[in-house]
Write a protein that binds this DNA or RNA. Structure first.
Length: 527
RNA sequence: GGGCCGUUAGCUCAGUGGUAGAGCACCGGCCUUUUAAGCCGGGUGUCGCUGGUUCGAGCCCAGCACGGCUCACCA
């Protein structure tokens, strides 16, 4: 550790040569960044303490600090060390963190600092840290950042604690933190000012650490299998790859409207045409739809494509990926989700789409043989969606009657072909697609198919979609002739799949709204 | 977009048409092993916004804003 990194030696002039020198020779400071009108008494008190701290000659915004350990390092390494071992070893540490509790007692004080994950207690006394240092310490507030230097010991109540020889100032917290006992509860404030949520609610930090670990695990899974990770355009001239309404934006220099992508699918398959036989992308999609517990307008999707495979192979891979995730990150195949326990232990249940419909809808199988009756029923469920095709009507009945029942992971196999314009037809039924949707916890978690590789058939399917659009369905796939041209160069048999990362995190983190697993979910701007 | 609920101090929350409250936080004083530290003293506020009813509105009514749940839609 570099010498001289102490309060008096580093942050303060060693000795003032004359009492007649101005107390604050430092350059004039710009006003602090907030209108006086918005400040309350506590903001003003903090500002005043900061001003007095600066007047002692201290650097208010230091460039760097030299911690030897993180709080978490210390907790991990010494949590089990008995008092005698700590005292004998005289372990010196320099550790940085935010002050999250403060118990001053005259000429000594206890406080906890946090590195965002763990907390560590510090004991500072005037006779050990020095009178001058202690007086400066007394100008600190809850929320300020400090670097504490000292030796580890255990208090009378056996808590691992740093006995501070010094305490360097690192940053000022100019506003009071939320209440220590209840944390920050207001949902809107938690999302708008997520930093406060992270500071006050440790379980929130854990959700996002888990999210990071999930994504890292997924990357490792595909990297180990020889996949190449790519990034394809987020701005599309044609918003293809999914049946969804896009966001529109504009490029000034080219003077063209562009769409934020609704899916990377068509670009990834172009790459398979180009010879990337195993390819994946983890990135954002944007869909101009409503917001609810399972939908955010921008969301993260994993899409992967593997040549020479079909959707049956994708099912096996999905089981391996999800089962492995649960075991690696949660230590078990099963995990709680709300009131239920979900098991990611392979194999997952497989259910034909039409069988699921017949089983859960209570409708007789005969009805499903009568397209007119199905369409009439679907249009009764969703009057604003008229007119419906047979497949769309089935889809609506599925959402209405089946989805919520599928809590344990279930592959819903062979949905209608006319809502799957990018999938091959099922081998044994030309009205069905060689496709599955994986349902978990009442949500669609994954969607995969044997990719349609016949360019002529693809062009025909696009034209059918255009026809539906003319009839009034605004959730159809646009024609993409450039993509058809790519297929004309030869897309090998390919299995492809998309997995919603946010929903996967919801499941594994046991959070019932997507906003709890997205750091900054979309909210209406204030004011 | 519909229905229901919410919005009071920095935060968490009480508040019954009649002088705006509590805990934490904050301010002043005391306190050298505390830990939701403690003791003494202090209430710091555009009751979301705009109107209305009333002698009188945080409370009743209408409209609006933002949020939550839910339905619809969507992955």
């Amino acid at each position: 550790m570099p010498s001289g990194r102490s309060w008096p030696a580093n942050n303060f002039p060693r000795k003032r040569t004359s009492m007649s020198e101005p107390q604050n020779p430092a350059k004039p400071r710009p006003p602090l960044p907030e209108d006086d009108a918005r400040k309350n008494d506590q903001d003003l008190a903090r500002e005043e303490k900061f001003r007095r701290l600066i007047e002692t000659g201290l650097e208010p915004f230091p460039h760097r600090a030299d911690p030897t350990h993180t709080v978490s390092d210390i907790v991990a390494a010494y949590a089990a060390s008995p008092r005698e071992t700590l005292e004998a070893s005289k372990t010196r540490v320099a550790v940085a963190g935010r002050i999250l509790s403060l118990r001053p007692m005259g000429k000594a004080a206890f406080f906890h600092i946090s590195d965002g994950r763990s907390k560590l207690q510090v004991y500072i006394r005037a006779d050990i840290a020095g009178q001058e240092a202690y007086e400066r310490f007394a100008l600190l507030d809850l929320g300020d950042h400090v670097l504490v230097r000292g030796e580890l010991f255990r208090t009378r109540t056996n808590e691992l604690t740093v006995l501070a020889a010094g305490c360097d100032f690192l940053a000022k917290c100019l506003h009071p933190l939320p209440e220590k006992w209840h944390g920050l509860q207001d949902v809107e404030l938690r999302y708008r000012r997520r930093y406060l949520d992270l500071i006050m609610n440790p379980e929130v930090m854990e959700v996002f650490r888990l999210r990071s670990a999930i994504v890292a695990h997924i990357r490792r899974f595909f990297d180990e299998r020889g996949y190449i990770e790519v990034e394809t355009p987020m701005m599309h001239a044609i918003a293809g790859g999914a049946l969804a309404r896009p966001f529109i934006t504009h490029h000034n220099a080219l003077d063209i409207d562009l769409y934020l992508r609704v899916a990377p699918e068509l670009f990834l398959k172009r790459l398979v045409v180009g010879g990337m036989a195993k390819v994946y992308e983890i990135n954002r999609n944007f869909r101009n739809e409503g917001i609810d517990a399972a939908h955010n307008p921008e969301f993260t999707m994993l899409e992967f494509y593997e040549a020479y495979r079909d959707y049956e192979d994708m099912m096996a891979m999905t089981e391996e990926l999800l089962g492995g995730l649960s075991r690696a990150l949660l230590g078990a195949d099963e995990f709680p989700f709300g009131e239920r326990t979900i098991s990611f232990k392979p194999p997952f249940k497989r259910l034909k789409f039409m069988d699921a419909l017949a089983h859960y809808s209570g409708l007789s199988r005969a009805i499903f043989e009568d397209p007119a009756a199905v369409i009439a029923y679907g249009e009764r469920l969703a009057p604003d969606k008229k007119p419906l095709t047979y497949g769309r009507a089935l889809d609506i009945i599925f959402d209405k009657h089946v989805k919520d029942n599928l809590v344990q992971p279930t592959f819903i196999i062979n949905p209608p072909k006319d809502v799957s314009p990018l999938a091959k037809a099922a081998k044994d039924n030309p009205r069905e697609a060689a496709r599955f949707e994986l349902m978990v916890g009442g949500m669609e978690l994954a969607n995969a198919f044997s990719e349609l590789t016949d360019p002529a058939e693809q062009k025909l399917r696009f034209e059918q979609q255009a026809e539906e659009r003319r009839k009034g369905d605004d959730e159809t796939h646009p024609i993409d002739l450039d993509y058809v041209q790519a297929l004309e160069y030869g897309l090998p048999p390919t299995g492809g799949e998309g997995i919603g990362i946010d929903r996967l995190v919801m499941l594994l983190a046991n959070r019932k709204t997507i906003r709890e697993v997205i750091l900054f979910p979309l909210l209406r701007p204030k004011e």
